[in-house]
Amino acid sequence: MAVPQPTAETRWRCTLCGNLTRFDVTRSIRATDYVHLDLAGESRVEEREVLSETIESVRCRWCDAVDRIELVDRPGTGASASA
């Protein structure tokens, strides 16, 4: 099951320990790269166009929880907050 990606108004939070800042993210990316090879044969990606991206899992770095990650409102985004 794909995990929702945070937006400008939301961020991830671990429901087990409350972590908001450290996560291991496993994602699948399908991309087209423009690769430049120098005369010695060394390659360097100069442009990348991401065609699709799916977040497969998010694991909390603090408590190692998987499937316990939720999206919550970022502070100061105008989303509803309790006082």
Rank of each mutant, 00 (worst) to 15 (best):
C63K: 09
S28L: 10
V3E: 15
S80A: 10
D24N: 11
A83H: 00
Y34P: 03
R11H: 09
E53P: 11
L39C: 11
L37S: 06
T10P: 10
E53W: 00
D33M: 01
V35W: 02
C60G: 02
W12I: 04
A83C: 03
L51Y: 00
R22H: 11
W12D: 04
T32L: 06
E70W: 01
V58M: 12
R22E: 14
R68K: 09
E49Q: 03
D73T: 10
V35I: 11
D73R: 05
V58N: 09
R13D: 10
T54L: 05
R13M: 15
D38S: 05
G18A: 10
A2P: 15
A79R: 03
S28H: 06
R61C: 15
E70Y: 01
C60Y: 02
E49D: 07
R30N: 07
E46F: 01
T7G: 14
T10A: 11
R13I: 12
R27Y: 09
M1F: 09
C17Q: 07
T10M: 09
G78N: 04
I69K: 03
T54N: 05
T10E: 09
D73C: 13
S43R: 01
E9V: 15
E53H: 00
D33W: 03
A40E: 05
V25F: 08
R22S: 13
A31L: 07
R61D: 13
C60M: 05
S57N: 10
S52Y: 00
G41R: 02
L39F: 08
I69Q: 02
C60W: 01
V3G: 13
V25Y: 08
A79L: 08
M1L: 12
E56V: 12
D24L: 12
P75E: 12
A81S: 07
A31W: 02
R11V: 11
S82D: 07
Q5A: 15
V3T: 15
G78M: 01
R48V: 02
A83F: 00
A2E: 14
L20P: 02
T15Q: 13
G78D: 06
C17G: 09
C63T: 13
L39R: 07
T7H: 14
R68P: 14
